[in-house]
Amino acid sequence: MQVVSMTEARNNFKAIFDAVYNDNDEVIIHRKGKENVVVIPFSEYNSIKETNYLLSNKNNAKNLQESIKQLREGKVIQKELVE
């Protein structure tokens, strides 16, 4: 993760965006006296939005948490994918 000032971000806009895209990493833009912002790859943004959506439903969140618990306890069944 990289942290840059607003001035540095402005002066290196393309390089910062290329780094975010190519390295699949985040860049924090520090804004003096204001809240910082983060530049992330679009795929990461979509993943965050999907996770938030899935966890917004209490029943779905409960089922996902139970599945994670079962995975950590080794209570899993592996299956072959059928094409």
Rank of each mutant, 00 (worst) to 15 (best):
44 E>A: 14
71 L>Q: 15
51 T>A: 06
47 S>V: 08
57 N>Q: 00
23 D>C: 10
68 I>Y: 03
50 E>R: 08
53 Y>I: 09
69 K>Q: 13
39 V>M: 07
57 N>G: 00
43 S>E: 09
40 I>V: 08
59 N>D: 09
67 S>I: 14
41 P>S: 00
47 S>W: 06
49 K>F: 01
65 Q>R: 04
24 N>H: 14
46 N>W: 04
80 E>V: 13
56 S>T: 05
58 K>T: 03
22 N>A: 11
32 K>Y: 05
25 D>L: 08
45 Y>F: 06
40 I>S: 03
76 V>F: 13
56 S>K: 07
61 A>N: 02
28 I>W: 00
25 D>K: 09
49 K>L: 01
58 K>E: 04
23 D>T: 08
73 E>D: 05
40 I>P: 01
79 K>F: 07
35 E>V: 13
58 K>D: 04
40 I>F: 02
40 I>Y: 02
46 N>M: 10
75 K>R: 06
49 K>D: 01
33 G>V: 06
33 G>A: 07
28 I>A: 02
64 L>C: 04
50 E>S: 08
53 Y>M: 14
26 E>D: 09
75 K>G: 01
53 Y>S: 13
57 N>V: 00
80 E>L: 12
43 S>N: 12
67 S>V: 13
54 L>W: 05
64 L>K: 04
74 G>L: 04
60 N>G: 07
74 G>A: 05
76 V>T: 15
51 T>G: 03
29 I>D: 00
38 V>I: 15
60 N>S: 10
22 N>D: 11
25 D>W: 03
39 V>D: 01
24 N>M: 12
56 S>P: 02
25 D>M: 11
44 E>N: 13
28 I>Y: 01
57 N>F: 00
46 N>I: 08
25 D>P: 02
57 N>L: 00
50 E>T: 10
78 Q>T: 15
39 V>H: 02
69 K>V: 14
28 I>D: 01
55 L>P: 02
69 K>D: 09
32 K>W: 04
65 Q>S: 04
66 E>H: 03
58 K>L: 03
62 K>I: 04
34 K>H: 12
78 Q>C: 09
67 S>N: 15
52 N>F: 15
29 I>Q: 01
47 S>Q: 13
79 K>P: 04
22 N>C: 06
60 N>H: 14
47 S>I: 09
43 S>A: 08
39 V>Y: 02
22 N>E: 10
